[in-house]
Design a protein around this nucleic acid. Structure first.
Lengths: 216, 216
DNA sequence: CAATAAATTTAGACTTGTCTAAATTTATTG
DNA sequence: CAATAAATTTAGACAAGTCTAAATTTATTG
């Protein structure tokens, strides 16, 4: 088994890999709230264990075994989030920190039974897909609201930022998962976006648009 | 917050305190599967934090704050065991190790909601009482089968040993929680006990009798 | 393309929790 | 009650994971 720190590094490398081929030391340091030198130390250990491909100064990628571990942790994280929201009635902005701890409970048998107990959900409370026990993700083709043009429309499906502040803001604006929206206008000056929902118009900043994903 | 190691020491001190006023270094070392010198080191740290009363060579007791932490961990352990058995259909001999990890999930809000979700159970799958969120235990007056005399009877209520081997043995002998028994005979030679159940007699060793608790 | 800036790694140190071996204290017993 | 045994603590070391400061490599740019 791997240590808690190792698991967190693998998970972070996985997440950063979605946006960039190679993950850099500084990116990891920023995400993990640690120092670049600490990251370097850990990268050597993970490389020795053959969980990552690491070339000094060139960043890292996950090996197949490394990715498997990372996806398994993400599966656990998302299933526990689903449990906390659907069974224990937490709100979607309250569950991230708890799931950060729970994702490290080691038993896979436990997580598979939890999965069945909840009816094998496909998406977590933030709209992220839950990988199955083989690590397979349901394919879903989402687009960032910030990448749309006027008149395009779709359904809010997921968020890219899980901070309570962001989620509470969305909740207040009634921009929660499942809501149908259409791009009414894009402000040229600051790239703010005006969304048309069923009953009203809502203006959101570029920052917000850049963290909202819709299914077309 | 306290570290995982600290929590495990406090929990162990609590458990050992039930059988002896002062808990010794060696008792702790045996229970925690570590060396006496390591225990001494940790006792100093816990003493500095005023979670235990420690006098070198004299053993330790928990302070009020220390006991509070210990009981809270035990509450978490037992609620998670209940969850694993009642919701995820694990058997009573399968849940101890998982609960050992889960008891360290920090959120008390989570555990209180889990408690309500399950209907505030009073006993865990091994018959141990689950303390409430204030740390109060339901009083229950149990007796060891090994302490009974012939003709005494009662209901199997709890076990003092949680090892899979012991629990599986009990399962096989149909000596599970709720079963009514009467002491039919005590063999003088080795203190084996012959139990009369509704439909048959079962002979158990002194060792087994010493780990079975009944309610009279 | 040389000089500077940015990113990364190395060196050396610290904390937590553990260990072995030696020293010390307490308990036991002839 | 002195001698031995048992329990406990101290001393010194080690692995994991982190840090600061210095050195090195890579990237940028005038």
């Amino acid at each position: 088994m791997n240590t808690l720190a190792e698991e967190n590094y693998l998970k972070s490398i996985y997440h950063l890999s979605l946006n960039a081929e190679n993950v850099s030391t500084n990116q990891l340091a920023a995400l993990l709230n640690t120092k670049a030198s600490s990251v370097t130390d850990m990268l050597k250990k993970l490389s020795d264990k053959e969980l990552i491909n690491y070339t000094p100064y060139q960043g890292v990628t996950l090996t197949v075994p490394g990715e498997k571990i990372a996806v398994n942790i993400i599966r656990k994280h998302r299933l526990w989030e689903y449990f906390l929201v659907e069974k224990l009635n937490f709100k979607w902005d309250e569950v991230h920190e708890m799931a950060e701890e729970m994702e490290h409970i080691s038993s896979n048998e436990l997580i598979d039974r939890l999965d069945k107990f909840m009816g094998c959900p496909e998406y977590d409370p933030h709209g992220d897909p839950i990988p199955d026990s083989n690590g397979a993700f349901k394919a879903n083709d989402l687009k960032l609201v910030s990448a749309l043009v006027v008149t395009e429309s779709g359904t809010i499906w997921a968020v890219r930022n899980h901070s309570p502040a962001f989620l509470q803001y969305l909740e207040k604006q009634e921009l929660t998962i499942g809501k149908k929206i259409r791009i009414a206008e894009i402000i040229e000056f600051d790239h703010s976006v005006i969304l048309q929902t069923e009953d009203k118009k809502i203006q959101i900043s570029r920052e917000v648009a850049n963290n909202l994903l819709i299914s077309i």
